[in-house]
Design a binder for these strands. Structure first.
Length: 892
RNA sequence: CCGGAUGUGGUGAAAUUGGUAGACACGUCAGACUUAGGAUCUGAUGCCGUAAGGUGUGGGGGUUCGAGUCCCUCCAUCCGGACCA
């Protein structure tokens, strides 16, 4: 009786559905445990072998915890709103809901193949109105809240209004210093027009509408959050991104900067993950200092982390974008300044980052050092960013590399305040120097001087201690169709007018969900608005035409799983109190500063407002490594004419060996060299080749091209399969090495376009889900990235067959017995139990799989077929290979 | 440039607390069974050496009775952030 994995797996998967085996209840005497996977975006490409890595790990852990007596919540769903479905709609005219639905069905089929224990009753889809109703509702709570800096938590906006009515805004200064109104009394507040009141409140709301520079991607027709822009291009698609001023919704995540930072200490994230979030938040402390400007009323406010270096300031630099530039530029310098500003405007963000040229212009104005009266020239330069700090710096060339380079370029004299620590060749950012040339600070250690200076500045009223964050408020609107509509209505103004024109009002909660309407066209609306602006009824109702970004739905989905069918609230407080935090969250590192930061913020806001009882969503995060693809290359002769490079002159395909390619890599091959190679491969083509002999425009190269990994065995090309794979390859000729064609290989991202995708369906079909599950775990530590290699799967499959033979012999049939085990057999069993349990508990799934193999090897050697031993092994194996374990268990 | 992680056979890797390095698996080699083998089983397999033996965890140095593991330093690879004052 052999191991018929296909029948067995099909049988059990059906059985689990029929018996509702994995249904989870919100009421239980058992302790709870919540295991969560980062839910996938259902792309059209389906799953490749990299995706299930984390799902298998979480499935094993869930099943293990369940066996250990926990009530385990282990749900799955789909992050179904987003750009790709909309792009697909624009290109193919298929409604995103339709293509998303198809993709989800395909994902589900692929997931079911692998035998997961999800409670599918709790499935969520972010694009489902029953789901996004609550995304909209949470948005409204953010809109109707403000951050009370005194209490250091979010509170209802009504509290703020009451405070305004009682005492003006003395207790709650406006967070936005650019806003025309800075302070007001209770009487003034009451006398303000409704619209003014609303505009003021908007400055406080946690979800607010502002008018500011955003990352605009023309190709995608939308705004992107900072974490969606990589090196000046969009993360998805790599399209250029420019700064543009637009009306946008934002989340006031900066108010949570400190708590997000602090919270990292109490959660189990990897060091690198914490590091990434810490960097992103970018906390720095220092001082803001006001410098008088000679012959001007205005002051120059700079931000510095090194107030101790104030006597080493040799020039000031302000961002060219600042209005101050126009106010202080001298007559002589006006032309140069204007020219420079024009130059800066002409440069894209990308150019600015790619070529870091030293450039700048003197404004003609001087700042005055408050401590020694020294006059300091004020320059403008693009290396100072308008968006950070005050957009102006005091430059200390002996201590700062960029400031130093600037002086070298423009011949500005340097004041050395750090004595021998400065060698005149490089700046030295030390804090350990004893200050020199520093007036009253002479002889003071730098790291002690900062405090002294800040004290002095505050005493004189020309400076304050200041903490800055690199993190910006998160852009929360997209000019796209396939996302959650904002439950916001504008009054008394056209929609696309800026802030200050119209007034935004929350829809009543009874009007939720605000359904996403059907559209005829998915192309952008007028003036940078989304497709919703093309719908007359929508515009007539003065509804917001933006939609929410992809991360809206994913910022709280872990809560909805707890109480997915609740129509009264997003998640009953009693239920969220029971399930509490996600105990184990598994997913990739790519969401480090996006999703993981936003969901942490939403959780804190919901906590502040009393809707949930915990401050951090995820107790422990396990990052699965990325499975890379191992691409294969063949090397093709290409003959092109320079006059017409698009035409291949050769009527058949010739593939020289990798060796030959290596000899000529990157080179143009001469006619004679080419002929030699040709003849070595196949002389019959030599004659035809001679026809090109006198063609001067001929370009001969050997170029690597990706070949589908399915027609390659290891590195050996399957010639027949290759010839059949594409019509153009039908008559291919190869240069063989020992009778084989050996492909080149390279590790790349697993992707359709590299032809290196390995589909789990194929492997499950060939070896079974249990083999596949165990092999994925056997590859190595889950956290580690590694290239996929199918070779070793045979070994795991062999193990399962060997296990089967402990129960059934092909000839003899059943071989297991009721005999009493020997001491030796019991030793093997108990060692295995200990090892597997410990390994599973510490997520060392690869060594646990090895422990199973060792056990089965030993039991085979001992010819042990004893029920008492075997049934214990089966229980242990259930999380790893549930189908075979259940089947054999049933037969015992 | 800054930060984080990693570096062990032909390959994926193990060694959980400083205590026999290379478990387990792939691959390779030899053999058994077989009409056959892409089934199954047995044995060998870090490197050098016929052997005795020597040597070995990126390089160099250190602590220790003892180091893959701890410390210093250099090198390499991967990931992340980069004009943030």
């Amino acid at each position: 009786m052999e191991y018929k994995f296909r029948e067995i797996e099909k049988k059990w998967q059906q059985q689990w559905i029929n018996t509702n085996a994995y249904k989870v209840s919100n009421k239980s005497e058992k302790p709870k445990f919540y295991v969560l996977d980062m839910f996938p975006y259902p792309s059209g490409a389906g799953l490749h072998v990299g995706h299930p890595l984390g799902y298998i790990a979480s499935d094993i852990y869930s099943r293990f915890k369940r066996l250990k007596g926990f009530n385990v919540l282990h749900p799955m769903g789909y992050d179904a709103f987003g750009l790709p479905a909309e792009q697909y709609a624009i290109e193919h005219g298929v409604h995103p809901a339709v293509s998303t639905d198809q993709n989800i069905n395909n994902f589900r089929r692929q997931l079911d193949n692998i035998g997961f224990c999800y409670d599918w009753d709790r499935e969520v889809r972010t694009c489902d109105p029953g789901y996004y109703k609550w995304t909209q509702w949470i948005f409204l709570q953010l809109f109707k809240s403000f951050y009370n800096r005194k209490a250091n938590r979010a509170e209802k906006i009504d509290v703020l209004i009451a405070s305004f009515e009682a005492e003006g805004n003395a207790s709650h200064p406006i967070p936005n210093s650019q806003f025309p109104i800075t302070s007001f009394t209770a009487e003034e507040w009451k006398s303000f027009a409704e619209k003014t009141q609303q505009d003021i409140l908007m400055q406080y709301r946690l979800a607010y509408c502002g008018y500011g520079e955003v990352n605009w991607c023309e190709a995608l027709g939308t705004v992107l959050a900072n974490d969606e822009v990589v090196n000046g291009v969009s993360e998805r698609g790599g399209h250029p991104v420019v700064k543009k001023k637009l009306r946008q919704w934002y989340l006031r995540i900066t108010e949570y900067a400190d708590r997000l930072l602090e919270g990292l200490e109490r959660i189990e994230f990897s060091e690198s993950m914490k590091e990434m979030q810490t960097n992103w938040i970018g906390k720095s402390s220092g001082a803001e200092i006001d410098f008088a400007i000679k012959d001007h009323e205005q002051q120059l406010r700079v931000y510095t982390t090194r107030p101790d270096t104030i006597f080493g300031v040799d020039f000031m630099v302000i961002a060219p974008e600042l209005d101050l530039v126009d106010q202080i530029k001298s007559a002589e310098q006006t032309a140069a300044v204007d020219e420079y500003i024009a130059y800066v405007k002409s440069r894209s963000e990308r150019e600015r980052q790619a070529e870091k040229k030293i450039s700048g212009v003197f404004t003609g104005a001087y700042a005055v050092n408050p401590f020694d009266g020294r006059e300091i020239p004020i320059w403008i330069s693009e290396y100072v960013l308008a968006g950070y700090g005050t957009g102006a710096i005091m430059a200390v060339p002996c201590g700062d590399e960029r400031d130093f380079k600037f002086t070298q370029h423009f011949n500005i004299p340097i004041t050395n305040i750090i004595g021998k620590h400065f060698n005149g060749e490089d700046a030295n950012a030390t804090k350990d120097a004893i200050l020199e040339n520093s007036g009253f600070l002479n002889g003071t250690l730098m790291r002690e001087a900062s405090e002294i200076v800040i004290g002095k500045l505050e005493e004189l009223g020309i400076g304050v201690r200041k903490v800055n964050f690199r993190m910006r408020d998160a852009a929360f609107s997209r000019q796209r169709y396939w996302g959650e509509p904002f439950p916001i209505q504008w009054k008394n103004a056209r929609l696309n007018d800026g802030v200050g024109q119209g007034t935004a009002y929350a829809l009543s909660e009874t009007e939720l969900p605000l359904l996403l309407p059907e559209v005829d066209s998915y192309s952008p609306g007028p003036e940078g608005e989304g497709p919703l602006a093309n719908i007359p009824e929508w515009v007539a109702k003065e509804l917001e035409t933006n939609t929410m970004p992809g991360y809206a739905g994913s910022s709280w989905y872990f809560l909805r799983y707890m109480d997915p069918h609740n129509a009264e609230t997003f998640c009953d407080r009693k239920v969220s109190d029971y399930w509490n935090q996600v105990d184990l969250y598994i997913g990739g590192t790519e969401h480090a500063v996006g999703h993981l930061l936003y969901s942490r913020m939403w959780t804190k806001a919901l906590y502040d407002l009393g809707y949930i009882g915990f401050k951090e969503p995820f107790k422990k995060l396990l990052n699965q490594g990325m499975i890379q693809g191992s691409s294969r290359f063949v090397y093709r002769f290409t003959l092109t004419s320079k006059n017409n490079p698009s035409v291949t002159l050769f009527p058949f395909q010739i593939f020289p060996s990798k060796n030959t390619y290596d000899n000529y890599v990157g080179k143009n091959i001469s006619f004679d060299e080419a002929k030699e190679i040709f003849e070595r491969i196949n002389t019959t083509y030599g004659y035809e080749f001679d026809a090109f002999k006198d063609d001067n425009s001929l370009e001969i190269k050997i170029l690597p091209i990706h070949v589908d990994v399915s027609v390659v065995d290891g590195t050996e090309l399957d010639i027949d399969a290759f010839r059949k794979s594409k019509p153009e390859y039908k008559n291919s000729v190869f240069e063989y090495t020992d009778g084989k064609y050996i492909c080149g290989s390279e590790i790349e991202k697993m992707s359709k376009r590299y032809f290196n995708v390995v589909n789990p369906d194929d492997l499950v079909n060939k070896y079974g889900a249990d083999t596949f599950r165990m092999y994925e775990m056997f590859l190595g530590p889950v956290e580690q990235s590694k290239p996929w290699d199918t070779k070793g799967i045979e070994g795991v499959h062999r193990f399962l067959k060997k296990l089967w033979r402990l129960f059934y012999d092909e000839q003899k049939g059943k071989v297991w017995t009721e005999e009493q085990p020997t001491t030796e057999e019991l030793k093997t069993l108990h060692r295995t139990i200990k090892k597997v349990e410990e390994d599973t508990e510490r997520f060392s799934f690869n060594t646990a799989v090895s422990a199973f193999m060792i056990a089965v090897n030993e039991l085979s050697d001992l010819q042990c077929h004893k029920k008492e031993i075997l049934e214990n092994i089966l229980v242990l194996l259930t999380p790893y290979a549930p189908h075979i374990a259940e089947e054999l268990w049933q037969r015992l």
